[in-house]
Amino acid sequence: MDQLPEFGRSIFPALMPTMKTYATLHEKNRRSIESTPREEFKYGSDPRQKLDFYSPDQVTDDTPILVFVYGGGLSRGDKRMPSPPTAEGLVYANIGHYFSSRGFVTVIPDYRRTGDGGAFPSGGQDIAGAIGWIKNRFTGGNHKLYIMGNSAGAVHSATWLLEKSLAESRKTVQSGPVVIQGVVLVSIPAHFQQAGDDRTEVLTTYYKDRVEQDCALGLVSRAESPITRLLVVTATLDPQDEILDCSQDFVNKYKEKFGQEKLSEVLLEGHNHFSTVLGLSTGIEREESLGKEVLKWMGQA
């Protein structure tokens, strides 16, 4: 973590140096990370609609479930990423291991990116598809469900939570054996008013001409009261313009519309845009602060 300020706050310049730094830490823990049982399943007909299913030591009638939705700027990302120069396949297996070792069934779905035909609200639809698969697998018991999205994954998680056309999916987890308990948005680019010109093509592909209306800030502006609690997480080394400012705009609008009761905020000291999730399963307490804060928030339900 001490090296992170050297990489700067801007997203693209910080990406590879951060990945390389944490690849070394993950490689040291490869045996532990890979000890968590993982299975791959299809949750839909599209080639991208596959998920990794990480199991804790025991799965009972009340084992909680976490769906983790990774980032990638709407155009990149995979549920198991190559991480140069070592640690092949350990990102995002580190997420699966971290939460499964703490008693959660952990589900990490791939989703349609812009190059795969992804266009709003496909990210939220793919989360809905993964949830449908989970409900078909867990037809009994009492399973608490949490969704955590990072960066673009947070955009998709907010879409699932707030987009009107996904109301039926939300309804399916308000009662029954799988019940939603909360959504975590980590470093969400809640709007794109300060996005650089290099984002224009991807944003136009995904949102067409409705970027302002269908970004997370636009969704919360016209949403009905959300069905569950919300935790918004940022990092001190997140970019001010693309993440911190617009995340705060989202929080302010959310509180204005729905009050403060169901919204919590956490600022992670010393982390950058990528290290919040990469720090999990390093076995280093301060690197794993995201996990600590999320688990603490879950326990407050």
Rank of each mutant, 00 (worst) to 15 (best):
V220M: 11
P56W: 12
A195I: 10
I180S: 13
R199F: 14
L219H: 04
S157V: 11
L74P: 14
A119W: 11
F258K: 10
K292D: 13
L25T: 08
D78V: 14
L268C: 07
Q300K: 15
V59I: 13
I284G: 07
E261D: 12
K164L: 14
S221H: 04
R222P: 05
K253R: 14
G117T: 00
Q49Y: 07
A119R: 09
Y43Q: 05
Y254C: 04
T236Y: 00
P13L: 10
P84E: 02
L268E: 06
S275D: 09
H26E: 04
Y146V: 00
V211N: 03
D214G: 10
A216H: 03
V186Q: 08
G196L: 15
G77N: 02
S264C: 13
V59M: 11
G89E: 02
L267K: 06
T114M: 04
E256I: 06
Q58Y: 12
G259V: 05
F120Q: 12
K171I: 15
S45R: 03
D116W: 03
A87H: 02
V251P: 02
F68D: 01
V233C: 08
K135H: 03
P56C: 12
F7C: 01
Q300G: 13
Q300C: 14
K79M: 10
P82V: 11
G89L: 11
V91N: 00
K28E: 09
I33T: 03
I188P: 03
E201Y: 08
K79C: 08
F99V: 06
A130Q: 09
S275W: 04
T36Y: 03
V233I: 08
G299E: 07
G77R: 04
L230Q: 10
T234L: 04
G96W: 03
C246L: 14
K42S: 13
K42V: 11
T86I: 15
V233W: 06
Y254P: 01
P37N: 01
M16N: 12
I180A: 13
N136M: 11
Y92T: 03
A154N: 12
H143S: 00
Q49K: 06
K164V: 15
P109D: 01
S75P: 12
E34R: 14
D249L: 05
L25E: 01
G218P: 02
D198P: 15
Q181R: 12
R31F: 09
I127Y: 02
I127F: 01
L290N: 05
S75G: 15
I134W: 00
E6F: 13
N136Y: 05
Y22K: 00
R113D: 10
A154Y: 07
N272G: 04
G299A: 06
L166C: 09
D116F: 03
C215L: 02
R80H: 05
S247W: 08
G89N: 09
K296N: 09
I108Q: 04
D241W: 00
G291A: 07
V251Q: 06
E288P: 13
T276E: 05
R102A: 07
D61M: 11
L237S: 05
V59W: 02
F120L: 15
R76V: 13
L237N: 12
S275L: 01
A223I: 09
P82R: 06
L162C: 07
